[in-house]
Design a protein around this nucleic acid. Structure first.
Lengths: 343, 343
DNA sequence: CTGAAAGCGCTTACAG
DNA sequence: CTGAAAGCGCTTACAG
């Protein structure tokens, strides 16, 4: 049972395939009668043009690639949904690619996407080996970076001001009276985390409460790893009174470690996350966190990718959005007398 | 800067395009020397065959469609990840489509996917208007239903035994001593929920603790809606001592409603969910829930879709997997004297 | 073993 | 306004 082709409708309507094609694409001039007849036949035959064939003729595939670390991570699944919705509205489908922040996966996926002649690619994952991206950027395939940055890469990007997000977290903790703080950072490959930590440290330093380097722990981005790292911190003699976590997953791990260690949050330990995912609304206590304006960011990504914002391809846009502190229940004033746990 | 085509490598290697094609696909017989030379040229020119062109010749597009209600819902985002990984291993990409359980979206997406000549489609979303699916099933496009069923549709399916899942939930609550229970169900369109409720009711009935119909509330699948419905239930004079929720989202809503109403979980109210998503590990108390063997299910879906399990297309497989009770902290014995809240 | 040629389902100049 | 024809980048018989 072969699908009906343009030939079938042309024959059925008694016209040439060129006319059918023109009718569909609104090109050329076609007599109204002929056009109506053609549409009627298409309807009757349930004709659906093959995007494969038209893509081969140099038209679009109406498919976009989305590279993120992991769709099953709520932060990224929320992004994936926004991207999908906007894409769908514009007639595009999106191929989601979870990279686990591994370069080999990034490479493999990009190669795959290229072979499929996609129309554009959104990169929201960390990449170490930038050569491949450089090369990609040199081709005609539109790229936009989302919430990540690769220095020296000439592409559009829409970012959150992660540095400022870090200062917001620090400011909040400082205002509450904390002076003994620690941070759980993501892997150094993740440029956004690096910025967040920088901002955090900077604000602390400015306030004369500079953080010691060994109170900055690097983790993989998972609840389990956050728990492990936070547990380590809580066992130290000089326990911090507040913890800044570079994403909500890590913060939740911290919450769990605190519970296990019998440390009350927020009374004995304040915890602040980043991203404002659904997870942060679900924990007890609910998580204070830094929000990124995701919806707007995704919208801008589209403007850049398939809209006219990205048209003048001479200058690459770099759009930076403002983060926001979302105060919930996991942060409070530090305990009156800081517990100096002695072994 | 046009991409390099098969002609470029043929010319460069001094052979015909047919030989290049054969070399790539391991077809026909090619002299070892020629073959090596061809590969060397492909490498040098960075030649990547166009899947568009080969798809037009009737070969696969190596693209799969995945229809689910919502990627940003953790249950489905976890599925999406498993699907992606298995697909990736087999050289496929997947286009994720969030339907919100709306038929119009289902139709639009399916049409889109058909035009893109995808190789197969996984349907994990509720569908009311089955005509369209019937028609789809009549075509050559492989389909497999995942965790959802449409009666009368002749396609492969891999399911959890939702009815049994419901009885597990009931059995657990019964064993704990609960007799006054209620349920938060999803929309009736969701066949799996219907089965879960049926099983739950059945087990209760068997135990002589039949549930009253007005203690079964239907909700949209969101935390907010679960909270609303649970709140309603908790305000009743005859408050239930246990709540079975058809998915974790609803259960979390129930947890939140209980907290707001000052009802302690699990001391005064037991709550049990379904799906065992990451969310259930993150709440306080952690959620007792019913788990589906998702990884295995996704594996089977692939066997059916692109493996040999689905080959003999005469008989459609219907594979039913066993659910499992995951006991955590949100369920316990009912309070000694059941509170009879009088207005 | 190897290559010339037809064809997949479209789009696009180009004549009429 | 309309249609014949070439071509997109491949694959596949079919001769040699």
């Amino acid at each position: 049972m072969k699908a009906t082709t343009i030939y079938d409708v042309a024959k059925e309507a008694g016209v040439s395939i060129a006319s059918v094609s023109n009718a569909i694409n609104g090109k050329g001039k076609i007599g109204k009668k002929k056009r109506d007849e053609i549409f009627k036949v298409m309807e009757r035959l349930q004709y659906k043009p093959s995007v494969i064939a038209s893509a081969l003729m140099g038209k679009k595939t109406y498919t976009l690639g989305l590279l993120i670390p992991d769709v099953s991570n709520p932060f990224f699944s929320e992004i994936a949904r926004s991207v999908e919705d906007l894409a769908h509205q514009a007639g595009y489908s999106v191929i989601t690619c979870s990279t686990d922040n591994k370069d080999e996966r990034v490479e493999k996926y990009i190669r795959l996407l290229e072979q499929k002649s996609i129309d554009g690619i959104i990169i929201g994952t960390g990449v170490e080996n930038t050569d491949m991206l450089m090369q990609l950027a040199g081709k005609s395939l539109p790229i936009v970076m989302f919430a990540r940055e690769v220095s020296g890469l000439s592409v559009h990007s829409v970012l959150t001001d992660d540095f400022k997000g870090g200062t917001f977290a620090a400011g909040h903790l400082l205002a509450l009276g904390h002076r003994q703080v620690a941070v759980l950072s993501e892997n150094f490959k993740v440029s956004s985390s690096v910025e967040r930590v920088k901002g955090f440290k900077f604000a602390l330093f400015e306030a004369g409460a500079a953080i010691e380097e060994d109170y900055i722990l690097s983790c993989e981005s998972s609840i389990a790893d956050g728990k492990r790292a936070a547990g380590e911190l809580l066992r130290r003699d000089n326990r911090p009174t507040a913890l800044f976590c570079c994403n909500d997953l890590l913060a939740i791990g911290a919450l769990q470690a605190a519970r296990e260690a019998g440390v009350a949050v927020p009374e004995e330990l304040s915890v602040i996350g980043f991203d404002n995912t659904i997870l942060s609304t679900v924990t007890t206590p609910a998580l204070t966190t830094i929000a990124q304006p995701m919806e707007q960011m995704v919208k801008l990504v589209f403007e850049l990718l398939i809209g006219n914002l990205g048209d003048r391809d001479s200058t690459k846009q770099r759009i930076v959005m403002q983060p926001e502190l979302v105060q919930r229940e996991s942060t409070a004033r530090p305990p009156k007398e800081v517990t100096q746990k002695v072994k």
